[in-house]
Design a protein around this nucleic acid. Structure first.
Length: 852
RNA sequence: GCCCGGAUGGCGAAAUUGGCAGACGCAGCGGACUUAAAAUCCGCAGACCCUAACCGGUCGUGGGGGUUCAAGUCCCCCUCUGGGCACCA
């Protein structure tokens, strides 16, 4: 037994034993808290802020995390080695519903559950060797952090950016709380894919993100370092639309001819992007929930059930997540509206395809030039009147049922003959003159509803006083502490409302009895500015020091999943603009470059518990070591593409690292015996070919880190290098390769490996006799002379087909290449008896003979 | 319907500006070492045809057309697939 153990120990010394190596370095690194710390903002080094999205502390890292953080950590390590002042922090998005659900399930308080999970995940991060500076750790559920959420909320309240209003809100019965528009996916909750979101009327707190709609949209143009995909998604989400609002006059009952005068006349305001087609408007359509409809139904009892039916249809379609799919239905109200441009009297309808929450909830219907209006008019026999003539009188344009393209106006009175664009401008001016309309830009983006009727979140720092109404909590009374020991239930309404000690307070204004706001903030508030806090994580007087934030921002590289393309990334952009306007920071945008990595797939589906195809990082680490798991996640696919997880692949990477281990440890003594020597810059010696390969590899990886980020090919390049070194092993063993060359090869190999396999690199660095941290070692430089090939192979083609490969000196001119190709036997045989019409030579690339 | 990706061996994938398609790895096959196995090392490996074998040939990057001396790469049309948006007036 003892012998066996002894044997194992000896084997471990000889063989690559990731468990032992990683344990050793984990302890060393833990004992050196400065290792991954950034230097202060006064540092002379150029700064580099690399950030991966902070995880929700579920208690378990998954492979998506491993991939995300392996990418960021590789970048951070390389930047450290390149001499940058690197900020590479980590934290926890620690508020949110799962903690409450866990509380229900296990009877553990959310705080306890969260704190335990954080500890567990931190262990996993350290086990994986992630180079985070834990001194700047941010945990969003701590009062030291969330007090600043409250502080920001008060600032926004002062500026009118936070406000309360009654509104229809998205209610998830499962979460028993409100959701933001951004959190509703296909009519269902983003957390509960099978739970339909209900509409409820509630008084809610909102943040006026729409005040920044225009800037949020324009700012996208100034983010070339963001994926086009993300910018497009945000552009669509903001949904800017230029058009015109026009008032149709409501024809009063029984006063059809006279009408009352000007301003007193009731109006229906419609929004249109095609005011140029207004002479073709043959009806006005109202959303079923339009306020005017209520007055109509009040006067006409028969109308009410029909309108209710339309509302029900809309609701059903919304629940199904597909408003576009319902058949168009409508009902004529019997009322009429007057087109302000020509005085024409058109019927007013209520229709289920008109949405109350977009535009004005009312449209002018132009069946001849809008597909939806056409469909509706056809169904109900409403007049279809052409008012646009296509410019290109193409085949059968007139035969088309409707024409949505631009053209020239007809049947439009004084506007006839104008182009659509000209007409829009003129009609807008006329509307403004006549005070019955104006040019208008509207957005699809809505204000951000941040109230949540849940416990585990930031308390909204407001007080309700019977005398003074809504009163903000004074700044010096922050934070409003979230009480512990709150009973969590599945019923609706905020759990905080059932905690008298929390609810009952005094009014800051009058000192009388008052009730605290019991809603908490959406957790996306927490993640909207957390990355600023990292720069000054322990500041107790301000969210962060402005000067420090000015030094670090914007974030140079942000890395995370594309699923945050809208929610998190638009809220953080908004928050940044607010903070800028508060004078806290100087940057307009939080993130300079954004990288969205692909998903981790297994057996053709995204890894998920419900699919049962989850691979646990702990298992992988236990079986192959952290280095192998990390390196595989970089090797198996380029980081921006989906990664197909194959365990055999991890084993392969592990084998490779074992080869590196064997070679380096075997020749470490040779390397240690040598000094740095000019021999290593000569390639005319034994081992010169290896030096060439080495410098080519340095060049490739260095260049790749500059932005292309195809880490899979970088790992492949290191493998090629190791293969060549291994092929030269007989010479190494025979001592034919000079020791300084061996030293240079092994040292550099280990340096190149450092961003990808930090544990092994640290261990081998030490075995090579180095004392300092490999992270502090300068990144190797490629010598172009050494990297250059002396001889290259050039394909010789005939009529574009490969016939032979000829060897020539690197840098040979066209003449040399041409004659080399013509001298080749295979080429000679192929052109015998034929005429060479033309010879194309691309130096360094190819020779092609055009032969007849 | 609209807007983005993607499609390359049995599999994951490579291929700076158009210039040797399949680097690197996985799985596979053959061999060495071993009593044996594992581990490790060496070698083979797109498909098809020809050949006893060597040699050699043809085809080949989702499909069809085109530009070019030369196309995985550029242009046009189409198919499939992943994602986002969608009665947004």
């Amino acid at each position: 037994m003892a012998d066996e153990r002894e044997q194992l120990r000896n084997d471990a010394a000889a063989r690559y034993d990731p468990a032992a190596i990683e344990q050793k370095w984990m302890e060393r690194w833990a004992a050196d808290p400065k290792l991954y710390a950034a230097e202060p903002a006064t540092s002379k080094k150029p700064k580099y802020y690399v950030l991966e999205m902070l995880p929700y502390p579920s208690g378990q890292l998954h492979m998506g995390h491993v991939r995300n953080y392996a990418i960021g950590d590789a970048l951070a390590r390389q930047m450290w080695m390149r001499g940058y002042n690197v900020l590479h922090p980590m934290g926890w998005d620690a508020f949110g519903l799962p903690a409450e659900n866990a509380a229900l399930k296990n009877n553990t308080p959310p705080r306890e559950w969260t704190v335990q999970n954080i500890a567990a995940m931190k262990r996993q991060f350290n086990r994986l060797g992630m180079g985070f500076d834990w001194a700047t750790e941010v945990t969003t559920c701590m009062p030291e952090y969330y007090r600043w959420n409250q502080w920001f909320f008060l600032r926004m309240y002062e500026k009118g950016l936070a406000y309360r209003k009654k509104s229809k809100v998205n209610w998830c019965p499962e979460c028993a709380t409100v959701l933001a528009n951004e959190q509703v996916v296909d009519g269902c909750c983003w957390r509960h894919e099978d739970t339909k979101v209900e509409q409820r009327d509630l008084v809610q707190w909102f943040l006026r993100i729409t005040a920044y709609a225009e800037e949020l949209l324009e700012g996208l143009e100034k983010l070339p370092g963001w994926p086009e995909k993300v910018r497009t998604m945000q552009r669509n989400w903001i949904g800017r639309s230029e058009g015109t609002e026009v008032d149709f006059f409501l024809e009063e009952q029984g006063t059809r001819e006279r009408g009352s005068k000007g301003a007193e006349r009731q109006r229906i305001r419609v929004f249109t992007t095609r005011v140029d087609t207004i002479f073709g408007a043959t009806s006005v359509q109202l959303a079923p929930e339009h306020p005017l409809v209520a007055t109509f139904t009040a006067e006409d009892a028969a109308l009410k059930p029909k309108v209710d039916e339309l509302i029900a249809q809309q609701k059903a379609a919304r629940d199904a997540g597909d408003l576009g799919a319902i058949e168009k239905h409508g009902v004529a109200t019997g009322r009429f509206a007057i087109n302000p441009y020509n005085g024409e009297r058109v019927p007013i309808w209520v229709a289920n395809y008109i949405l109350m929450d977009y535009g004005t909830g009312a449209i002018m219907s132009v069946p001849a030039h809008d597909e939806r209006d056409f469909e509706f008019a056809t169904k109900y026999g409403i007049e279809i009147r052409r008012v646009i003539k296509p410019i290109s009188e193409g085949e059968g344009a007139d035969a088309l049922p409707f024409l949505s393209e631009d053209g020239v106006l007809v049947n439009s009175g004084e506007y006839d003959g104008l182009t659509c664009v000209q007409a829009q401008e003129k009609l807008q001016k006329a509307a403004a003159r006549g005070a019955f309309g104006e040019a208008k830009v509207i957005f699809r983006l809505k204000d951000w509803g941040v109230s949540r009727q849940r416990y585990w979140g930031t308390p909204i720092p407001m007080v309700h006083c019977e005398r003074d109404g809504v009163v903000p909590v004074p700044e010096d009374q922050l934070p409003v502490i979230l009480p512990d020991n709150v009973e969590i239930t599945q019923q609706g309404g905020s759990p905080l409302a059932r905690v008298p000690e929390f609810v009952n307070t005094t009014c800051p204004k009058c000192g009388g009895p008052a009730r605290r706001e019991t809603d908490t903030m959406d957790t996306f508030v927490d993640s909207s500015w957390y990355f600023y806090r990292y720069t000054d994580a322990h500041n107790s007087r301000a969210p962060f020091d402005s000067d420090i934030a000015k030094y670090w921002f914007p974030i140079d590289q942000y890395i995370g999943g594309v699923e945050h393309a809208i929610l998190h990334l638009i809220y953080s952009r908004f928050w940044t603009k607010v903070m800028r306007d508060l004078g806290l920071i100087r940057n307009d945008e939080p993130v300079d470059r954004l990288f969205t990595q692909g998903m981790v797939i297994k057996d053709g589906a995204k890894m998920s518990k419900s699919k049962g195809n989850v691979v646990s990082p702990d298992d992988m680490v236990a079986r192959y070591g952290a280095d192998s798991a990390r390196m595989y996640s970089l090797f198996a696919a380029p980081p921006d593409r989906d990664l197909d997880w194959q365990e055999d692949g991890v084993a392969g990477v592990s084998r490779f690292l074992g080869r590196v281990w064997r070679i380096v440890t075997k020749y470490a003594a040779v390397a240690r015996s040598a000094e740095a020597s000019p021999q290593v810059s000569s390639k005319t010696q034994v081992g010169g070919a290896l030096l060439r390969k080495l410098h080519q590899t340095i060049a490739k990886i260095t260049q790749d880190f500059e932005g292309r980020w195809h880490f899979n090919t970088d790992v492949a390049a290191i493998m090629e290098l190791v293969n060549e070194i291994q092929d030269a092993e007989p010479q190494m063993a025979a001592g034919e390769i000079p020791a300084p060359v061996v030293r240079e090869l092994l040292r550099t190999l280990v340096l190149l490996l450092a961003p990808f396999a930090p544990f092994l690199a640290a261990e081998l660095w030490e075995q090579l006799g180095e004392k300092g941290a490999i992270l502090r070692e300068p990144w190797p430089k490629s010598d172009p002379d050494l990297a250059k090939e002396d001889e290259i192979e050039i394909p010789a083609q005939i009529n574009g087909k490969l016939v032979a490969v000829v060897r020539v000196a690197a840098g040979s001119d066209s003449k040399t290449l041409e004659s080399a190709a013509l001298a080749d036997d295979k080429v000679k045989a192929r052109i015998a008896g034929k005429t060479v019409v033309k010879i194309i030579v691309v130096p360094g690339r190819t020779v092609n003979l055009v032969v007849k």
